[in-house]
Design a protein around this nucleic acid. Sequence first.
DNA 1: GTGAATGTTCATTC
DNA 2: GGAATGAACATTCA
Length: 256
Amino acid sequence: MPELPDVEGFRGVLADHTRAEIRRVDVLDAQVLRGVSGRRLDDALRGHHFTAPRRHGKFLVGPLDGGAAVLFHFGMTGELRWARDGDRHPHDRVVFVLPGGELRFRDMRKLQGIRFAADDDAVARILGGVGPDAMDVGRERFAELLTRRQVKATLTDQSVIGGIGNLLADEILWRARIHPRRKGADMSTEDVRWLHARMRTVLSAAIPTGRVPPRKSWLTGRRDEPAGSCPRCGTTLRHGRAGGRGTVWCPSCQPE
DNA sequence: GTGAATGTTCATTC
DNA sequence: GGAATGAACATTCA
């Protein structure tokens, strides 16, 4: 699931539970821990509390009082949820136990996971591999980032721009009427400006919903239908590959 | 059984 | 060197 809007939603979950003292960390599956042991994580967090969380690309940074931080990456199937009570789910991998309930990091496929940073430098090292956040990229910078590569490959490359995943990229390109395999270098200044503006439109609309909304008026609402039609012109959507990922586009609105 | 799934990384090939 | 492709990671579902 998680792309920028989803992670923004998880940020909200974490933000609701800052200041509460962490009683302990239950590591149910250490496979999701990256570069830190369960013991060390528990030692570092016990008795501390989260402070205002932030997001960079698809990373959620949960700073702790004292300067350390927990970094969450949700891969394709991760999520963070709050539970006051009730049974844990088999895919709950790490649980932060607070006084009134638990923050549960659930992740079926375990493709990414949780990292620990002892200080701001360590956070910066981890985030150093991620390009500017999609919501922070200005128009000029955006134009510089589009190279001769296929535009979808660029949009979804986290080292170039942080936060855009497969669904968002298709949604943005559809909204901008640009074919996913167009080369950045072949696009006019006007095209690039338009694409940048559509990116912001889609992100701004998706963030409050905490996901890429599967509305019928969006491409995302139709992409799973076997022969879905374009919400704009009714043409049957095309399914193919671009940037190494399954891709959906409208052959009429987004000519090659 | 097969292929694909909203992610990332590494190796390989052009 | 840049860009594209395929496999790998782990698990579920159509």
